[in-house]
Design a protein around this nucleic acid. Structure first.
Lengths: 325, 325
DNA sequence: TATGATTTTGTAATCGGTTACACATCATGA
DNA sequence: TCATGATGTGTAACCGATTACAAAATCATA
């Protein structure tokens, strides 16, 4: 790879002039510029970002912290972030935290050692562990966090319950996501409010995590403890799917004997039959908007909205009964 | 963030001595070492990787090129790569190529500008576009590629067909993956061989891509053109799923009227009912082994296997009929 | 033509590490 | 006792960019 020195030599100017050309900054005479551009072309030169980063104390890299990339919600978010970031001239360093605070701290250190420009985190509580770098929190947002992109979980919870309420539920079970995750609370509160308003009896089933491995056990538990329930609001689509599968295995008719609504609208939810009704979270947009917001912070551009809230949407598929008017 | 100079000053030694301590390289007296370690502790110092990378002309970053991170096969691969890489002291820069050669080239340039240590690529043909950096190709491997981790597609194709052959197929349709992807060929060849050996008639249905968006159209096409087929070997699980969904919608009984086998064993394939039978590709291991191999190359360690082939496995679920002995 | 402002250019310091090299100290064996 | 090699340490160059600063060239204007 050619260096700025070689370009300077070939063009017959100093490195400062070359630098001025490539950064389009400061005075450069027309013929100097031409000579430099020609030399750059000839040598196929592109500036070493490492050297730049060392001097600027800031790289063009953004750290992306994900709780678990194998959870199908996050690849979509990552894709959104990646699209935005690369358009704005940055790249992503991937940090898959695997719900492990130690790993998260390791990553934050690595990010710092690499002069990261900012952090995009879908991991809960990252704001407590970052000091100086700009941080945008995604999805699982706490109220203390300054810059964030999230959805209205309360409303999402309400929408899910409303969809159930309109479909003659007999006994409803709400699966409650992990206690540590604030969005679980919100959703639960929203759902409960709607069910109470409609005088619909409900039970709560606590789930351990959002991990794939725990869903089967939860589904089994549901059919053991709530065999008579005819409606369920699942923690997310993965749980919804696990329930559906177990139900179909047991020959339970969906949606007539059991209707299910999930949360997230994961890509596969539309690929099933019966399709899983769900509250769609715009994962891609969360990532995309988050990245845009972060880049604004990094570049000290004016930020109109520090906390962006994106709408959720009810997606009706075959796992819910017909609406009763 | 503290620098090596500050550490040296606090410890009362030169920067060279500090460098020797942190790299555990060269002679250092016992009390010097102690003083340095103490100073490092006090200042919570960790070396700036950017400065290191500049001098070494080689960073601790590895570029990961993926065709499409939203395709559920790749997050698992990425997770495997990430696990291995982080254990070995490296980090991943994410490059989501979106099946676009221009984007791939952009990424390779960015990687180079960042003194990347090596490239891990699941994108086809990357070897033609990288010159000097170590490269390990994953999954979609061409015969010309030096370092690679892949599975035996021919055998996978055979296994899929064998599973069908043993289950009294009447008319078989093989969905053929995109022409440009060598593994499609291999699988097809394997499947055809088995079907021919068993004198089972088959038809081919060409599919456009491995993208989520194209699956629906393919499923519709299948039922339009091959209404009488009772067995199908799908390009992958996403296609398999699309077929299954369309079949269930049309009230076709699975597996009795139509049996389906997929390819990949994506996480959701086990979450359905009927579950999708499939040929499992060890996506996580591909990523993991690939990263290990790459790191060996980077560090000039002896490599016993330049091209690693991992076994595929038949996963039987409800989408296939009972085996006839 | 002299003056000052503007434009153009280059030199050298800097970012934070690594390491070649020189030099000093020390122990060992002839 | 002295040569020898091993050990310990510091100085300074270097990696490839950016930029402060100084100096030179050009231009406009009085």
């Amino acid at each position: 790879m050619a260096t700025i020195k070689e370009v300077a030599k070939l063009a017959g100017v100093s490195v400062a002039t070359v630098s001025r050309v490539i950064n389009n900054k400061g005075y450069v005479g027309v013929d100097s510029r031409k000579k430099v551009e020609h030399a750059i072309e000839q040598l196929d030169f592109s500036p070493n970002e490492v050297a730049r980063s060392l001097f600027q104390k800031k790289s063009k890299l953004i750290g992306l912290l994900l709780p678990d990339i194998a959870n199908p919600f996050f690849p979509l978010l990552a894709k959104g972030a990646e699209d935005a970031v690369s358009q704005l001239g940055y790249s992503l360093i991937l940090g898959n935290v695997q719900d492990d605070v130690t790993k998260e701290e390791e990553y934050l250190k690595i990010f710092e050692q690499n002069n990261i420009a900012g952090v995009l985190s879908a991991v809960q509580g990252s704001s407590k562990r970052t000091k100086t770098t700009p941080l945008v929190t995604l999805d699982r947002v706490e109220s203390s966090e300054q810059f964030a992109v999230h959805t209205d979980d309360y409303q999402g919870g309400m929408m899910a319950a409303q969809a159930i309420a309109e479909r003659t539920p007999n006994q409803v079970v709400i699966m409650v996501g992990p206690k540590e995750i604030p969005s679980s609370f919100e959703r639960l509160a929203g759902s409960i409010r709607v069910l109470k308003e409609n005088n619909i009896p409900y039970s709560l089933l606590q789930t351990k995590s959002f991990r794939l491995e725990d869903t089967d056990a939860a589904a089994q538990l549901f059919f053991k403890d709530y065999a008579t329930a005819d409606s369920v609001i699942a923690s997310n689509d993965v749980y919804g799917l696990a329930l559906m599968r177990e139900a179909l295995k047991r020959g339970i008719d969906i949606p007539n004997e059991l209707q299910i609504i999930g949360y997230d609208d994961m890509p596969f939810s539309s690929l099933l039959f019966p399709g899983l009704s769900t509250i769609a979270q715009p994962a891609y947009e969360i990532g995309y908007k988050g990245a845009e917001l972060l880049c604004k912070c990094i570049e000290n551009k004016p930020v109109t909205e520090k906390r962006i809230q994106l709408p959720v949407k009810l997606i009706l598929r075959e796992s819910l009964r017909e609406k009763v008017l």
